[in-house]
C-alpha cells in the first residue's frame, strides 16, 4: 500500500521531471563540465582551469559586465517606479481608465522582436521618428544606435517602455487588494497623500515589489532578442550584454568552452542576486 502510493507519486512527477532534467539540469551539468574539460568545440581528457584563466585576460568581458550591470541598475528601478506611478494613476477614480490600462499593457503583449523593429524605426538616423521630431525644433539629431555613448541607453529606453506596463499589472492587482478602510482611517487622521503612500501603500506593496524586483533583474540578464535586431552588441561592444556575448562566443566564434565558462559566471551572478534579494529584502517585507 505504502509502496504503491510512492510509485504512484513518482509516476505523477515523471513528466515534469523528464522535462526539467532534459532541458535544465542536464544542460547545467554539461555546461559546468565543458567549462573545465572543453577546448574550443572539443573535449579534453583532463580538467584544467585554462578556460577560467582567460576570463582575466578578456578585455571585452569587463566592458560586457559593466554594460550588463548598468543595464540592470537603470532599467530595473526606473521600470518599477514607472509601474507604481502608472498603477496608482489607473487605479484612481477616473474616466476611460480601461483605455489607459490597455494602452499601458500593450507593449507587454508584443514580442520583443516586433518591439525592436518598431523602435528601429524610432531610432534610425535618417528616417527615424525621434530625429524627425528633433528636426522640427531645428536639431540635427543623434545616431541613437550608432553612437557608442548612446547605444546602451537607447536599448534601456526601449526595455523600460516594454517592461513597465507588465509590472504595472502586478501593482494594480496588489493595489486592489488593499482595504479602502485603511485609506479612510488615514483620511480621518489628516494624512497627506505622500504620507499615505509612504506609510501605507508602499509598505503594503512590498511583497509585490520583491516579486517584481526578482523578475526585473532576471529579465535584465535574460533579454537578448532586441540586440539581434538593433545593435548586435555594437558599436565596438558599447551595447553588448553578457548573454549576447555568450551567444557570440558559442555560435559566432565557436568557442563553446569559453561560452560555458561565461555561462557559469552568469549563473553565479544570478544566484548571488537572488540570495541577496531574498535575504536582505525579505526581512523588511510585510507579508499578510
Amino acid at each position: 500500500m505504502q509502496l504503491s502510493r510512492q510509485i504512484q507519486a513518482w509516476l505523477l512527477l515523471l513528466p515534469a521531471l523528464c522535462l526539467l532534467v532534459a532541458f535544465t539540469h542536464y544542460p547545467v551539468v554539461k555546461t559546468v563540465a565543458r567549462s573545465f574539460f572543453g577546448f574550443g568545440v572539443q573535449w579534453e581528457d583532463a580538467a584544467s582551469l585554462d578556460n577560467y584563466r582567460y576570463l582575466l585576460e578578456d578585455e571585452v568581458l569587463g566592458q560586457v559586465l559593466y554594460n550588463s550591470f548598468m543595464y540592470a541598475a537603470i532599467t530595473v528601478p526606473v521600470s518599477i517606479v514607472l509601474a507604481i506611478a502608472m498603477a496608482l494613476w489607473v487605479n484612481s477614480k477616473m474616466r476611460y481608465k480601461g483605455v489607459l490600462r490597455t494602452a499601458y499593457f500593450t507593449p507587454t503583449i508584443l514580442p520583443m522582436i516586433s518591439v525592436a523593429n518598431i523602435w528601429l524605426f524610432f531610432y534610425s538616423p535618417e528616417i527615424g521618428l525621434l530625429n524627425k521630431l528633433l528636426a522640427l525644433v531645428g536639431h540635427s539629431g543623434y545616431n541613437w544606435l550608432g553612437d557608442p555613448s548612446l547605444s546602451l541607453y537607447s536599448l534601456m529606453a526601449m526595455t523600460i517602455w516594454k517592461e513597465a506596463g507588465f509590472f504595472m499589472i502586478f501593482y494594480l492587482a496588489a493595489l486592489q487588494t488593499i482595504d479602502t478602510n485603511l485609506y479612510h482611517a488615514a483620511a480621518i487622521e489628516n494624512a497627506s497623500k505622500w504620507t499615505v503612500f509612504r506609510r501605507i501603500t508602499f509598505p503594503l506593496l512590498m511583497p509585490t515589489t520583491l516579486f517584481v524586483l526578482v523578475n526585473a533583474l532576471l529579465n535584465a540578464f535574460k533579454l537578448v532578442d532586441h540586440l539581434f535586431i538593433l545593435t548586435k552588441g555594437g558599436p565596438n561592444n558599447s551595447s553588448n550584454l553578457l548573454l549576447y556575448y555568450i551567444f557570440e562566443n558559442a555560435f559566432s566564434f565557436f568557442d563553446t568552452a569559453y561560452a560555458a565558462v561565461l555561462t557559469v559566471v552568469l549563473l553565479v551572478i544570478l544566484v548571488v542576486l537572488a540570495l541577496l534579494q531574498f535575504g536582505v529584502i525579505e526581512k523588511r517585507v510585510h507579508y499578510r
Binding site: 482595504d179 478602510n181 485603511l182 479612510h184 482611517a185 480621518i188 489628516n190 506609510r199 501605507i200 510585510h286
Partner: peptide, 21 residues
C-alpha cells in the same frame, strides 16, 4: 472640510488597522 480637518475620530467595523505596523 476634508475628513482630517473636521476634528473627529472614527472606529471602523473592520477595525482598519494597518497590518504592517
Amino acid at each position: 472640510e476634508s475628513p482630517g480637518k473636521r476634528n473627529l475620530s472614527m472606529v471602523f467595523q473592520s477595525y482598519a488597522l494597518f497590518p504592517h505596523l
